[in-house]
Design a protein around this nucleic acid. Structure first.
Lengths: 108, 108
DNA sequence: CTTGTTTATGTCAATTTCGACATATTTAGT
DNA sequence: ACTAAATATGTCGAAATTGACATAAACAAG
């Protein structure tokens, strides 16, 4: 059960810190990835909610469709900054983002 | 009152999007900067709360003292990713970060 | 089975952020 | 005032992220 989760992350390209013996994630690494995935899911959900295509969202924030696809797919090569910019452009408020991190907002 | 705020941001190095006529910030830009400043302040507060030096925090996340100083000073050349990593390393939970963004947590 | 639309994947040079280091400035203790 | 510790500021090459573009794959609608 644990190995599956790890494998999924590695497949997505996450580099697990070398400090952790043999692919164990520290609580901080885990929380960090968790936050990123939460936010990326919210982007996807909010975009769908508004009926926008990835192309539309990309243009709206001066990015490109491929980056949005990677963002929503949880690609580690996407910064939290870009994710937040996308969310804000979709009309998501700071408060809503906070609620998501608190666990009071289901991105699905 | 408005001009002062803008000037402060520019002095810090923020580049205001060219789309906005004559240095006006769009609501999204404003919210984005707001979130970043909130988080940077929380880092400073949490570090102080634990009595760590910038150097200690830097080492703990594989960074350097100068970066932490810039982070806490609201430097735009610092990613949200680094800020979040710092917060998590300081023991701040995802939930607490959420509360901050909701406005229910005073970083001061 | 086509055709058109949306999303996924990979690559590229340019920009940005990175840790590191040096050094200035501020702060606190004596 | 002097000293030492902590923080701020600036610069550097290296690494990561960027938008762009091409193209593949998935998904519908007819």
């Amino acid at each position: 059960m644990e190995k599956k989760k790890r494998k999924k992350l590695e497949e997505k390209g996450y580099r697990v810190g070398s400090a952790a013996d043999f692919l164990e994630l520290t609580p901080e690494e885990e929380a960090y990835i968790d936050i990123r995935l939460d936010i990326s899911k919210l982007v996807k959900a909010q975009r769908a909610k508004r009926g926008w295509t990835q192309e539309q969202l990309a243009r709206a924030i001066g990015s490109s469709q491929s980056r949005i696809a990677k963002l929503e797919g949880g690609d580690p090569g996407i910064s939290l900054d870009l994710m937040i910019k996308a969310l804000l452009r979709l009309g998501t408020s700071k408060k809503q983002i906070g609620k998501l991190l608190e666990g009071e907002l289901e991105p699905a």
